[in-house]
Design a protein around this nucleic acid. Structure first.
Length: 1005
RNA sequence: GGGCGAGUGGCGGAAUGGCAGACGCAAGGGAUUUAAAAUCCCUUGUCCGAAAGGACGUGCGGGUUCGAGUCCCGCCUCGCCCACCA
């Protein structure tokens, strides 16, 4: 008995020992160390391939099975590419600053530096367990001061740069580009030389573009400073944020629940305008849009980025306030004696007016009221005394509602009338001005002209408050038909005459229909000039199709000084500061007089001070209006510093979670460089990232921020590519099982008992439940920890299982029950080579030349695995491996010449097992250093194929023919078949379709 | 409300417009074994049939085509993202 066990042990597939052995080997031999150009021994003649994972955020829970999905895939690609002769860069690091670490630290009372360090160690240990071929010498952590030194350096560059929108230049990649970031010094040089001046809104302008400009020399130092800070790409501005007094901090929108309370602790959250650091990402909106077209990303992700930037075109229009202006003798006359107007009226200098943005200037004649956002600065000025109480009450209420609350129900429109009126510039009519929270301060100008006839929101509002609705665009018949059908309004008439009646009714009062018409059509009720005395020539639009009407009226607005064509983006500038402890400090010093300077490069990093008490200061929940002081404010010694005999204070904010991940892929190229974020030669060699794999949850924010950051570095000449990530691949989510009761309560697997096939009941009550697929979550107890799976089956099995679950980009449920199938595959592969009894090479092993059948299967497998890998179809590549093993298993002879190439094929998927087998087959060097096997085209292709024969599309027979049989011989072979003959008996052959190597279809009647 | 995906056996999933269900899991049968595990072999979409064989089958309804899981139109369900963006 003991003897049997011993021999069995000697030859069994001992994955624990094998995996430990080879992980040690790789480490000792530095198998995955990647050389940079210039390093001794580097071979830059080889093509490069940069495979990047989205580095993890090291939370306290450790890796879950979702993380390694993408990591397994990139590891397989890396190993494959190495064998294909590429220099492969495959690094890993940790995104170790951020809110969750701080929250965890607050909860446990342990300093975030300590918990983060521990978590990183856990993650690193887990990642190594999988046998991933990372170059661990290149590991980076965003919370290391040697790393964030450069995050700060880059921020300082943004602080000291402006965006020159007029700059035409040919970029490093040869494209002609308009607009780029340039150092602030270039702007001051232009201003000081008088080539540039400052326009009426204190924006720098070229001298030749604005004859009325102010000269730099005439500005006070204070004004000059303001002009410059308004141009910085990193700047401080007052913005409306979610302020939670109880937590003592500002929260991101994602951290506020739909009930307007904080996700953590359920404390009230208020909208407050606060000074925050902002990054001027909006300057890059157009380039972010343009360049997304040139990258190899999944189309849905590209679309999401486009939508996030949200470009729209239309016009900005001036609506003069009715009590300040009148229209006399074909000109605007200002009734306010104190107002002095210099020069002709234009969109930018028109005083006492509301400016709006619209995508539909063609509907101007249908504007029957206006709306200001509650935060709009004019609300206070224009509200009539009689309305004052109602308006301020409404504004106060809106102020305290979170964005989520405000947008939660979009059906019920609320608002109040200000008592004031504005003049519609196209027809001189006065229309009422309302305040309503359905207009957002952050988009366009924070004010709208409301056209209830042609906008769903305005339509609802107008119906609620009894405001007139005018039709100014006539839809086509389809629209009437669908609206009337949808609303179940009977009696859509048949005749032309009746159609005309419906159209007339719409023309008279579109409010009688169930919804507004928002599409394109033909302008009506827009007569223009003659009817009312207005300035300039109010151009008539009647009869014009929407597109033409837009163009015509935009020209008229510009000519009359009451508007101009405009482009708008949904994208906002990036709020870049947090009032937290665990993040990068800003490299900014504040002087007593409000002056801000960047910390000089040679004094970076600005180290995060070590603090015992890193918690935010909680405030009384009712203390809504006192400003939060960030935790860094308590590091008294750190805060103040002396420079040139003056006292400065460090900025107390820290950067958001996203900051470090904006450029980590660049640090991997040269991770220990103390002087530069990365050596330019290394950057030119490795960039761009050839394959970037990660979850779709980063589809917008991280990927947009990183692209912006990269483009900024590109503008300043620090990187050589316009885009950082050439190809992006989104791995799908790994889901878990859950169970739903009749009353739709979802419970986890631990509350359920399985009684039979697809038969589950609640343990507590015996109530039957059905199995459903749900997100893995702590509350459902369906989270799977990879450690357990690896302990039981090994890393190679784990890798195979995750890759075999389904397509890499699809969401799919984890089912532990399927894992043994892949373990069995490893064992079967093992036994193809090793005799399980003796541990020697299997007795079927032979040095003979493989027979033809074996060669054919082998070469087909080489072809299939390679082709599937190139397309990241790893699941079907593994299916090909199964096929090979299924073929080989029952064979009496397993020639070395067939097994060796197969082991090479295996090595990206199951690297430990492949190394062990390779060694047992008598090789010294690592399997990873071998060259990927080539297949013989002839052998990979079948000599004979079975072709289906259809009669009228129904399969009647199968015939075997030579693979390159031509159409004629295929046809005759098909017709020669008995059952085919029977099926067409007595019929005439109309047509024969022959698809070479596939099928023959005989059409007979 | 808008946008984008996806719906194929008991389950995970294959299938350049050309033989639906590769491969795996689960299930059933057999060999081996004192027995079990492991291993190896076979069966396994549904319905009718003893069998040969036949009919039906890719969420539902239409269409294009010699031929549709795949393309087009309309609907249903699920998932994800955005969400009053003027």
């Amino acid at each position: 008995m003991a003897g049997t066990q011993q021999t069995e042990r000697r030859g069994r597939y001992d994955f624990t020992a094998i995996e430990a052995k080879w992980q040690r080997y790789w480490e000792e031999h530095q198998s995955f160390r990647t050389l940079n150009p210039g390093d001794p021994g580097a071979d830059t003649n080889k093509p490069k391939f940069y495979v990047l994972d989205m580095f993890p955020y090291p939370s306290g829970a450790g890796l879950h099975v979702g993380h390694p999905l993408g990591y397994c895939a990139t590891d397989i690609v890396s190993r494959y590419k190495r064998m294909r002769g590429f220099n492969v860069l495959h690094p890993m690091g940790f995104d170790s600053f951020g809110l969750p670490a701080e929250q965890y630290a607050i909860k446990t009372g342990v300093h975030p530096a300590v918990t983060t360090g521990k978590n990183v160690d856990v993650y690193r240990r887990q990642l190594k367990m999988f046998g991933f071929s990372y170059d661990w010498d290149r590991e980076v952590k965003t919370s290391d001061s040697s790393y964030y030194k450069f995050t700060q350096w880059m921020f300082a560059r943004m602080f000291e740069s402006w965006y020159d929108e007029k700059w035409r230049w040919v970029g490093a990649e040869g494209e002609d580009t308009v607009g780029r970031a340039r150092p602030i010094s270039t702007l001051t040089a232009e201003l000081e030389a008088g080539r540039w001046g400052v326009d009426s809104s204190m924006q720098p302008v070229r001298a030749k573009d604005d004859p009325d400009r102010k000269e730099w020399a005439d500005l006070s130092p204070e004004q000059r400073r303001r002009v410059i800070s308004n141009q910085r790409l990193a700047f401080v501005d007052e913005v409306s944020v979610n302020w939670c007094p109880a937590l003592g901090t500002v929260l991101a929108n994602e951290e506020v629940d739909s009930d307007g309370r904080s996700a953590i602790g359920k404390h009230p959250v208020f909208r407050r305008p606060l000074h925050q650091w902002m990054l001027r990402i909006t300057k890059y909106a157009e380039r972010l849009l343009d360049d997304i077209e040139g990258v190899d990303w999944p189309e849905p992700i590209k679309l999401m980025q486009r939508n996030w930037v949200g470009k729209s075109t239309g016009a900005e229009v001036v609506f003069p306030l009715a009590d300040k202006w009148s229209v006399q003798g074909g000109a605007w006359k200002c009734l306010d004696d104190d107002t002095k107007i210099e020069g002709p009226l234009s969109y930018t200098n028109f005083p006492h007016a509301i400016r709006v943005y619209t995508t539909r200037p063609d509907t101007l004649f249908g504007a029957t009221y206006m709306v200001l956002a509650p935060e709009h600065e004019l609300v206070e000025q224009i509200t009539e005394p009689a309305q004052y109480d109602a308006v301020s009450e409404y504004v106060a209420a809106a102020r305290n509602r979170s964005d989520l609350e405000r947008t939660a129900d979009t059906k019920d429109k609320t608002g109040v009338f200000t008592g004031a009126y504005a003049i519609n510039p196209v027809n001189g009519q006065s229309i009422p001005i309302w305040v309503a929270d359905y207009v957002l301060m952050g988009y366009g100008t924070g004010a709208i002209m409301a056209v209830p006839g042609h906008d769903t929101r305005d339509f609802e509002f107008a119906k609620t408050f009894g405001i007139p609705i005018i039709a100014v665009v006539m839809p086509g018949d389809d629209w009437f038909e669908s609206v009337l059908t949808a609303a179940d309004v009977r009696g859509w008439p048949e005749g032309e005459e009746d159609r005309e009646k419906i159209r007339a009714a719409f023309r008279e009062d579109p409010g009688t229909l169930p919804e507004s018409f928002v599409g394109d059509g033909t302008s009506i009720n827009s007569p223009g000039g003659g009817k009312v005395e207005v300035p300039g020539i109010a151009c008539p639009l009647d009869g014009l199709p929407t597109g033409e009407a837009k163009a015509r009226i935009t020209d008229w607005l510009a000519a009359g000084g009451v508007g101009r064509g405009a482009v708008n983006y949904r994208l906002r500038d990036w709020i870049f500061s947090r009032q937290k402890y665990w993040g990068e400090p800003f490299p900014i010093l504040h002087g007593d007089d409000g002056e801000m300077i960047a910390v000089p490069d040679d004094e970076l990093p600005v180290e995060l001070p070590s603090m015992e008490d890193f918690k935010p200061t909680p405030r009384d929940e009712d203390d809504v209006d006192s400003m939060p002081e960030p935790p860094l404010g308590r590091a008294k010694e750190w805060v103040t510093c002396q420079r040139d005999g003056r006292t400065y204070r460090h900025d107390l904010n820290t950067m958001p979670q996203w900051a470090g991940s904006c450029w980590y892929y660049l640090r991997f190229l040269d991770p220990t460089n103390p002087d530069k974020f990365c050596d330019p030669e290394a950057e030119r060699y490795w960039m761009p990232v050839d394959l970037y794999v990660g979850g779709a949850e980063h589809a917008v924010l991280h990927l947009l921020y990183a692209r912006f950051w990269h483009k900024f570095l590109y503008d300043l000449g620090h990187v050589s590519t316009r885009e950082p990530f050439k190809k992006l691949y989104n791995q799908g989510m790994i889901q878990g099982f859950a169970y739903r009761t009749k009353s739709s309560v979802v419970v986890g697997p631990d509350e359920v008992e399985q009684r039979g096939e697809d038969d589950y009941v609640l343990k507590s009550s015996g109530e039957p439940v059905t199995r459903v697929i749900a997100k893995m979550s702590k509350s459902l107890h369906n989270v799977v920890n990879p450690d357990e799976i690896i302990a039981q089956y090994g890393a190679d099995t784990f890798r195979l299982y995750e890759m075999y679950m389904g397509p890499l980009d699809a969401a799919k449920p984890w089912n532990t029950r399927d894992v043994p199938g892949l373990f069995k595959l490893c064992q079967r592969i093992w036994r193809l080579v090793v005799d399980p009894e003796t541990g020697e090479l299997s007795s079927a092993h032979t040095e003979d030349t493989p027979d033809e059948a074996t060669l054919r299967v082998l070469h087909k497998t080489i072809k299939r695995v390679g082709e599937e890998l190139e397309q990241l179809k790893i699941n079907t590549a593994i299916a090909a491996i199964f096929d090979f093993v299924n073929f080989m298993t029952p064979r009496k002879k397993r020639p070395r010449a067939a097994l060796e190439p197969f082991v090479l094929l295996l090595s990206p998927f199951v690297p430990h097992l492949a190394e062990e087998l390779w060694q047992r087959l008598g090789h010294e060097a690592s399997v990873g250093e071998q060259t990927w096997p080539e297949y013989d085209k002839k052998l990979a292709r079948d000599e004979e194929v079975e072709v289906a024969v259809q009669v009228c599309g129904k399969i009647k027979a199968r015939v075997t023919v030579s693979a390159d049989a031509d159409e004629e011989s295929l046809k005759s072979a098909a017709l020669a078949d008995e059952s085919v003959a029977k099926a067409i008996e007595g019929k005439t052959i109309r047509k024969v379709i022959v698809v070479k190597g596939r099928l023959v279809n005989i059409v007979a009647t």
